[in-house]
């Protein structure tokens, strides 16, 4: 569904992502693991198009590396940024409908509120006044409103309490099942990642350290890369 070849991203003269190649298949969840500063967020920004990158990003059959972010969204790539970045002064409902722009649909699809009932109760509230966990749900809802084929989630567990992290994993699995979409998620929390991922890539200093899939996910080996 989404395949990259030799992606490189630089800030000024210093290259931080050194030629990554990976892919995610249909209805598959790929977790990209790594400590802070290993390039996860940079990689995600390059995938959605906020940061310029070289190499190729193949989405379906199309090369999208030259496309602007909103054009990538229109084609079916959705982005939930680190730190959520909901539109604080807009109401919850307006936040979700900002995502509808890519689809041309007029009203919020009901399955979004089914997934996140709390957002329905609070739909008239300003998004900036929601709690961190609720804002995270809203950011996911906004991304789902664009009708994505691939959902990019950058550290969705950051700043969220452990009991809610469990719910989040359940919700993401449900989204994948109902909507038949692929998910690419960046994470530091191994337990959360193994709850949702079919495959994991471990990122170290802008390189892929190694890759594991399915049952053979080696918790001990990944943990070594996640702790300092």
């Amino acid at each position: 569904m989404l395949h990259t070849r030799d992606i490189r991203v630089s800030y000024g003269m210093s290259e931080v992502i050194h030629g990554l190649s990976f892919g995610v298949g249909n209805n598959e969840t790929l977790a990209i693991m790594g400590r802070n500063g290993m390039g996860k967020t940079t990689l995600f920004k390059a995938l959605i198009g906020i940061l310029p990158a070289s190499g190729t990003i193949q989405f379906g059959t199309e090369e999208i590396i030259r496309r602007q972010p909103f054009e990538r969204v229109k084609r079916g790539l959705a982005y939930v940024p680190q730190g959520r970045l909901v539109f604080g002064t807009l109401s919850v409902e307006e936040n979700i409908s900002a995502g509808l722009e890519a689809t041309g649909r007029r009203s919020v699809p009901t399955d979004i509120y089914d997934l996140f009932p709390v957002l329905h109760d609070m739909r008239r509230r300003k998004a900036g006044n929601l709690s961190g966990g609720q804002q995270q749900q809203l950011a996911i809802a906004r991304a789902l409103a664009t009708d994505p084929k691939v959902l990019l989630l950058d550290e969705p567990t950051e700043g969220i309490q452990p009991s809610i992290i469990k719910d989040l994993a359940r919700t993401l699995n449900e989204i994948k099942r109902i909507r038949k979409i692929s998910i690419v998620v960046s994470e530091q929390v191994l337990s959360f990642a193994s709850d949702i991922a079919d495959r994991m890539i471990v990122l170290d200093k802008g390189h892929i350290a190694f890759e594991t899939a399915g049952d053979e996910i080696d918790a001990a080996r990944i943990s070594r890369h996640l702790t300092v």
Partner: peptide
């Protein structure tokens, strides 16, 4: 209006509005 939502979203965070699918 929907157009107003787009305008206000862009005002708040231009980069994120673009990444949420709005032609800023």
């Amino acid at each position: 209006s929907r157009w107003g939502t787009k305008v206000r979203a862009t005002t708040q965070n231009r980069t994120m509005a673009n990444a949420a699918g709005i032609n800023t």
